[in-house]
């Protein structure tokens, strides 16, 4: 279809730069939006019963070791928009879930999710996906443990501790098949509605990289021979935000240009997990030293991940 559109309809040739970029764009738009809709619908149907209230009950009063693993997995299974991060954070702490466990959830949630996992697997193969999943979880769990060990509860805003929720109101769930399908569609509308622009921009950047940026450019600034490529990728990614779905086309294009896997994954993690808008939202509940720790820890962890992969796979 992309062939037909780019080469027949627009009359571009396959070896021209524009033709190449347009081909990449059309192919990825089709692929990613179809994938995104199918995944979000399917997972939405399965997940219709996984409400924040239920997660709170699952995590509260659990022994520490299993709680960290569970928080990571729940983070991976749930795509929370940043506007629900704050009530969720407070709700978990109020239920007596330790700060470290709560932070594990907040770190893994944007970085590892079903959309990223299925798309990475479909477009880049299961090996990279497995690496991404395992390291994302590890970074989240170690981050939570570190926050716990350092006693960072003192950097939570005081008002948070004063909140008493009383009787928690449950989100209503319609368990019938029809209800679940309706929920799945609602999730598609909500999530695709939220991410489509990032995905288009991501595909646009991917297409631009694909068609216009010469291979040698990347080989020079970010190739395997440049020892600073990984920290550079992570630092560039910190202020930027995109969601995992929007990053896939960029990752795809960068890997095709011969960038090492570690460098590219570090960039993806940095862009999805830390961003200025997210830090501003978390500022409502966390004091500045905690946010600084959060950002520095993640940056260091992603740099470590990048070097590790480049070393192991290089």
């Amino acid at each position: 279809m992309a062939d037909w559109f780019a080469f027949s309809l627009l009359g571009l040739t396959a070896d021209s730069k524009l033709g190449d970029a347009v081909h990449f764009f059309v192919e990825d738009v089709t692929k990613i939006f179809v994938l995104l809709t199918v995944i979000v619908f399917a997972v939405g149907m399965l997940r219709s019963m996984m409400t924040p209230e239920r997660m709170r009950r699952m995590l509260a009063g659990r022994r520490k070791a299993p709680a960290y693993g569970l928080a990571g997995l729940l983070g991976a299974a749930t795509p929370f928009c940043s506007c629900s991060a704050v009530p969720l954070f407070i709700g978990l702490l109020e239920a007596g879930v330790p700060m470290g466990v709560t932070m594990t959830f907040l770190i893994t949630s944007p970085m590892v999710n079903e959309v990223a996992v299925v798309m990475l697997a479909a477009l880049l193969g299961w090996k990279i996906t497995a690496l991404y999943f395992v390291t994302g979880m590890t970074v989240g769990i170690l981050g939570g443990l570190a926050i716990d060990a350092l006693g960072m509860e003192r950097f939570v805003e005081d008002y948070v501790w004063k909140i008493r929720m009383g009787q928690v109101v449950e989100t209503e769930v319609d368990h019938s098949l029809r209800g679940r399908m309706a929920y799945g569609w609602q999730q598609v509308r909500e999530i695709v509605g939220r991410v489509w622009l990032y995905v288009l921009i991501g595909i646009g950047i991917g297409a631009g990289l694909h068609g216009y940026v010469p291979q040698e450019f990347f080989a020079r600034i970010a190739g395997p021979d440049n020892p600073f490529a990984v920290p550079f990728a992570v630092l560039v990614g910190i202020p930027l935000y995109s969601n995992a779905a929007g990053m896939i086309p960029i990752v795809e294009a960068l890997l095709a240009k011969g960038l090492p896997v570690g460098t590219v994954l570090a960039l993806m993690m940095s862009i999805t997990a830390i961003s200025l808008p997210e830090l501003m939202i978390l500022r409502k509940v966390l004091k500045v030293p905690m946010l600084a720790f959060f950002a520095v820890y993640l940056a260091v962890a992603f740099i470590g991940v990048g070097y590790l992969f480049n070393f192991v796979l290089g």
């Binding site: 409400t51 924040p52 209230e53 709170r56 506007c83 629900s84 704050v86 009530p87 969720l88 407070i90 709700g91 109020e94 008002y159 004063k162 909140i163 008493r164 929720m165 009383g166 009787q167 928690v168 109101v169 449950e170 989100t171 209503e172 609602q186 409502k284 509940v285």
Partner: peptide
Amino acid sequence: DMAAILGFGVMSTPGVVLDGKVVHAGG
């Protein structure tokens, strides 16, 4: 105000309160 919202026992927004009583939460 988050403290007020959670004070109603609502963790997933939007929630709806009718005449002082929560009638809906989550979406």
